[in-house]
Amino acid sequence: MHILATEGLTKRFPTVTAVDQLTVAVGPGVTGLVGANGAGKSTLIKILLGLLPPTGGAARVLDLDATTQGAEIRRLVGYMPEHECLPPDVSATELVVHLAKMSGLPRTAARERAADVLRHVGLAEERYRPIGGYSTGMKQRVKLAQALVHDPKLIFLDEPTNGLDPRGRDEMLALIRRIGTEFGISVLVTSHLLGELERICDHVIVIDAGRLLRSSAIDEFTQATQTVTVEVEDGLEPLADRLAEAGQTVSQQGRLLVVKVLGPETFDVIRDAAVDLDLCLIRMEQGRHRIEDVFREEVAGV
């Protein structure tokens, strides 16, 4: 069963085409939507929420038509925007209770749900203080709480890790994973960093300039793009030649070698080659592929 599906979806603005003939289907679980800034991620979410009419094509969310049943969709879906969206002079509790009512929850239910959800996202006593005094991490948690408060079937998270420090980023990612697994709420999460989505997603969609580059389960994805970075003191070129002879795919990037991982044997080959050539191996690091790498491969592949 598909949580959402688009068919030839297109959105043209006077100057740009934000979404271009996009056909994707997303199943339950956590799905990552990856693209550079301006790739059309936010536009796609607005179309799926029924807030922006598409120029062409069709989109269905939870089996509802995005162009005609927008209000129905928005009743069952949560949305965390990318930008700052919190008024500074009210407390997190007051805001989340209010937004729960805006989603149709009666007064007492709104109170209970808001308290529950704020605890789940990790806001304790500070939830009674005005939001103006919160850190970026706490604000992101409030934004997430308001998207969850009406117990949606699906949530759209637009760049939820934006502006967070490494620890906050890890906590946010863990929380998103929990939402997708323990809470049983399907998640569509956008990012321009493929690396961080790999850790939490079941499925990844890559778009660029509004067009679909790739849509596949996360296992296929990481296998296809796994690399290891090798750094040696001297003799980078002999090592590269030796590895190429051994059937590995090697590319030189400055003082580093990037070797495509074909399987566990790749690591053995690198180790053996370094020993044979009597090289001083400084580091071997699992490649962190960024969105750029995928683009490079896709472009090379096309």
Binding site: G78, P81, M102, S103
Partner: peptide, 8 residues
């Protein structure tokens, strides 16, 4: 946007 992403 928090309001408009709801049914109102």
């Amino acid at each position: 946007p928090l309001y408009l992403s709801r049914p109102v």
